[in-house]
Amino acid sequence: MSHATRTQEQGTERMLQLTAVGQHYGDHRVLHDITLTVPAGQLLCVVGPSGCGKSTLLRTIAGLLPAREGTVTIDGAPVTGVPDSLAVVFQDYGRSLFPWLTVRDNVALPLRRRGLGRAERRAEADRILDRVGLSGAARRHPWQLSGGMQQRVAIARALVCRPTLLLMDEPFGSLDAQTREDLEDLLLEVHRTDGTTIVFVTHDIDESVYVGDRVVVLSPGPGSRIVRDLPVRLRGQRDQIATRGLPEFVALRAEVGRAVRSREAE
């Protein structure tokens, strides 16, 4: 099933709704009047220059940071604490994975809250590790792996509870180009198979168009707001070489790039 058709099929069921969300630290405005509806199953990319409050937006959705203004609802329920159905992947895998646990125990950790026995947790962790291509590394420690493998562990850990909403904060920002492309395709495969709703924050314009069903551009801070909201409609299944050469890809990338830059110039 191609991205385009799937996007049209979903569409009606709201997964995530932000209404007039604002954040500020003291006098410093970070986000201003963010209103956004994300239908179930959509892969939404949020792009913007660094320091524009993308991470703050993600932390607000995750319930790690209470919204100062406006409301966030997930599946119709207002976010007050951290919602159950949600998982987060941070950019800094080296700090987000626990070095004292093995890869398998890191991945199995979220399952402790689901009341599963030890054997079940291990089996579930191994299943998901196999899926991200790390079945051989279960007994090693995160710091013994390469950066790309560590981020795969973090992705496995996020997927292990089968979240309905996956939040990713510049997850591939510190990886080399080849590894990044591999992980982009892994993410697309997960999205295709599981139909998880994903909010993907990145400062990489190319990546946002390649990965997303839809790209939202934030203005630079202080007081970032949404300046552009573009659907991504690309022919066929995404392919690192072919997709990036499509005229509509190039046109979209230019459009997103202009949206990011035009606000930067102001």
Partner: peptide, 14 residues
């Protein structure tokens, strides 16, 4: 202790 390690656990509902 890294705040991100704490946030990771919190994000998983701990």
């Amino acid at each position: 202790t890294d705040p991100l390690a704490k946030d990771t656990l919190r994000a998983f509902g701990f």
